[in-house]
Structure formats: C-alpha cells, structure tokens
Write a protein that binds this DNA or RNA. Sequence first.
DNA 1: CCGGGATCCTTCATTCTGACGGGTTTTCAA
DNA 2: TTGAAAACCCGTCAGAATGAAGGATCCCGG
Lengths: 161, 161
Amino acid sequence: MIRLDDRDIAILKVLSREGRLSKAELARRINLSPTPCWERLKRLEKAGVIEGYRAEVALRKTAPHVTVFVTLELENHSSAAFQAFERAVEAYPEIVQCWALGGGFDYLLQVVTRDVDSYQRLIDRLLDQGLGLARYYTYIVTKPVKTGHAPPFELLLGKGD
Amino acid sequence: MIRLDDRDIAILKVLSREGRLSKAELARRINLSPTPCWERLKRLEKAGVIEGYRAEVALRKTAPHVTVFVTLELENHSSAAFQAFERAVEAYPEIVQCWALGGGFDYLLQVVTRDVDSYQRLIDRLLDQGLGLARYYTYIVTKPVKTGHAPPFELLLGKGD
DNA sequence: CCGGGATCCTTCATTCTGACGGGTTTTCAA
DNA sequence: TTGAAAACCCGTCAGAATGAAGGATCCCGG
C-alpha cells in the first residue's frame, strides 16, 4: 500500500472531480509548480493508484433507460459456482456493477437497460444459463439521488478519524 | 433528448474508457480528422451529454476501507420527509451514492468508510438526526466483482434491440 | 552545533498540442 | 441536379508538456 502525502491526496481529490485538467492547471490548483506535480502524477499512475480516466456520460440526456438493482442468491455456495457466476457477469455489458456481499445475499448487481422489458429478458437469460441461481429480487431505481461522487479521500487517508 | 449518430456514440464509448485521450488520438480512434471530431466533442460537452471527466482512484491501493450497501425505509412517506432525507445524504461525503427505489425499500445507499466501526458511527449519526428512519439493513461488500464499467451505449442507443 | 546527502522544490528552455478561423470539398437527400 | 450540412485541410498563436539544471530544507551522525 503506497504512502501518500497531503499533496498526493490533493491531486487525487482534484482529478477525481476534474479528470481532464491540464497538468499546468492541476499544478496551480495544488499550489505546486508543474514539474514536481507532473512527477507525482506519473508516480500515482504508475503505482496504479489512478487506474484510469473516464468521461461521465449523462445517459438521461441521450436515451431512455432504466437502472435496476438486483440482489441474488446462489443455490450452491461452492467456489466453482461463484466463479461461474462472476464470469457470466463479466460477459454482460448491461451489468454495470456487481459486488459480492456478506449478510443475507450473495450478490448485488446494478443493471442498465433500455426498459423493464429488456431487463426481464436479461434476467431470464441469466436464469437459463445453469448458474444455479436460487432467488433474486428486483429494485427499480426511481430517482438517482446522489451519484458519481468520489470517495472521501480526506476521511479515509487523513490522519484524524 | 439530444440526437446522436454513430460517430457521437463512438466518441462517448472511447472517452468513457479513456477519458484523457488527446483530441488528435481521439479523432484517429473514431476515423475522423481532428477538427470535426473536436466540434462534436464540444457539442457533446455543451449539451451536457458529457458531464465531466473523473480520474478513477484505486482506493484499495492507498488505504484500508470498507464499502457497505444500506437499504432503508422511512417511517413517513411524505415528500417533506424524502426531501429532508435526501438533503442529509448530500451532506455526508461517506455516502458515495444514493438511489431512490421502487419495490420494498425507499433508498439504497453505498457508503465508503475506513472500517465497520466508523460505518456504524455514521449510521448512528443518521438515525439520531430526526429524519424518521424506520428500518435499515446493512450489506458489507466482501468483493467488488465488477465496477466502474460504462453503460452499454450500443445497446441503449443503437437501432436494434 | 554543523556538514553531507537525500528529497523536494523552482525556474527556464524546448518542443508539441489545443483551439480556433477561413476556405474548399464531399455527401446526401430533396 | 442542386443546395445545405458536414467534413477536410491548412495556418497561426497561446498555452501546455516535458526535461535539464540548480536552489532550499530537513534529517542524521559526528
């Protein structure tokens, strides 16, 4: 686990909100001259702390769609079953995120599709795939209240609690 | 809702994976010369289709932390209660995402904190805030299986189904 | 208390990219 | 066939990226 000082944290904080800032402007923001700032950035990228840069697309402005969360359980808690399921998840672009959970369910999925119908077809395909899905619950998102926020770097990385 | 052609979609697709590509390289990727490509990009940004650019930070490489999902219900389904809750959510940086749901729960939260302890303190603070929280369930993420993926632009925007 | 070295910074010079504008060519549909 | 929209092809200039050379600061052992 790489050691970060306050300036590194400042870099992460700034870029997690404005990822396309020029290096010169970034340096200005964190009160540093371009060169050391650029070296720090290179270091963070090389160490894999910054995994990449993504444009955030406002789907709502371009196409009708629904976001659905799905909790589900596998019939069989063998590592083979988990692996098979996780491999299947990778293959579906509509499954935008997936987490393995402790406490009541095995997985939580976030799915984005064109409409509820295509969501249901996706689920049907998953169920028919012989992955041993025992039970699933569907929760349609009616309103994204808060999304796309960066984790609280100061709270997590800072000295205090 | 803005109309996008295949080239616009290609731009979104590329930038949602490599948000810091230079304009020249972007143009090459989508088989267009720099100028029209740049004009399209400007149009997409101005229209708000591209909301911003974010660096993706691998928290796991920098600090111990836990991700927790929380489903919760409000006692009182009045719009005032919802508004109060949503305002409270905005104020907590540890609450990274929040969605209003149909089907069984009112809200789903994604929370990132240093450890389970500070998660519990966060929840306690929320509960003590007089927001009328009726019930909540905690699901700790044991493994991020698939994260940070762009939505399936072709499926959502394409002609076919 | 002081010198040496490591670390991190600043400044500066060079090269490259971005952000346009202007004019020409291509495409496509009426 | 013809006209409008879109793409292309420069050219220009400011600002950005990158690298080299040198200065401040801090830590440690003597």
